[in-house]
């Protein structure tokens, strides 16, 4: 555990000295800011209640592309630079290395996720001035927003574990990033499988695709303010399984 902590600290610090992490944070905020602004404008002019979860569902979609950017270097870079050889001859277990890296990346993800709270603060601000005309009429549903944050946080952990896995697959960061992006996108669109008519795809297939889709486990629960334990377990189990596979993959380097 102590060793994981050491790795964790280094990985997290590494994000703050790496340009790509700042670029991801910047891109996330710009893109979310645009959609937030458009939505807010629309709601204000149509006298609709505020919707705090909109930025989060957009954010979740962006993670399909940004999680690989954050994770692709984790193992691939070390393998190429030769530092992985050093790490693997340190008196630490392979699982410590995997856990340290995973939590380091997840912590940085948490930081970016926390940045999106500016939009919630903005919503709280505009919805609290009841007397002022031209602002939103209803208050922000903070309970719903908090549940959504928990869901998106767990979902982010899952995307990062998958990115970490592919980073351990290859020494090439681009390939690692591309593979995890492809897989995350497939897991994302799995949800849409429900739209395919039963005559084309049997409902069993559709249902199993939907069950493993990452989106379906927050869109109908956390995003609506519900904390469904089934979905919490889904993400945790997914993370555990993928981290286990990653550990075995790292170990397998020794046998090659």
């Amino acid at each position: 555990m102590r060793n994981s902590w050491t790795i964790f600290k280094r990985e997290l610090r590494q994000y703050f000295v790496s340009p790509i992490a700042y670029m991801v944070a910047f891109a996330v905020l710009v893109l979310l800011g645009l959609s937030f602004n458009t939505d807010l404008d629309y709601r204000v002019s149509n006298l609709l209640p505020p919707e705090g979860t909109l930025v989060l569902s957009t954010f979740a979609f962006l993670m399909v592309f940004f999680a690989p950017l954050l994770t692709m270097r984790l193992f691939a870079e070390e393998a190429r630079e030769g530092t992985l050889e050093l790490m693997m001859s340190m008196p630490i277990r392979d699982v410590d290395l995997v856990l340290g890296k995973f939590f380091g990346a997840w912590a940085f993800y948490t930081v970016i996720l926390a940045l999106t709270s500016v939009y919630q603060i903005a919503l709280l601000w505009v919805t609290n001035w009841d007397a002022d005309p031209g602002v939103l009429r209803a208050r922000l549903d903070t309970g719903e927003v908090i549940a959504a944050y928990i869901g998106i946080w767990l979902y982010g952990g899952a995307t990062i574990s998958i990115g970490l896995f592919f980073s351990a697959v290859t020494e090439n960061q681009i390939i690692a990033g591309f593979l995890s992006m492809a897989v995350l996108l497939m897991l994302w669109v799995g949800d849409i499988a429900g739209l395919v008519p039963a005559s084309i795809l049997s409902t069993d297939v559709v249902e199993s695709l939907r069950v493993i889709s990452l989106q379906s486990h927050y869109s109908s629960s956390f995003l609506r303010g519900l904390i469904v334990m089934e979905d919490v377990y889904f993400y945790i189990a997914l993370i555990v399984v993928v981290l286990f596979m990653t550990t075995r993959l790292v170990e397998s380097r020794r046998w090659r």
Binding site: R10, Q14, G82, L86, S89
Partner: peptide, 21 residues
Amino acid sequence: SLSVRRQIGYLPETVPLYPDM
């Protein structure tokens, strides 16, 4: 393996360094 690794200081052929540290 872990006990062995504790006894050893190892410098691989390609010096394993983190350029950003």
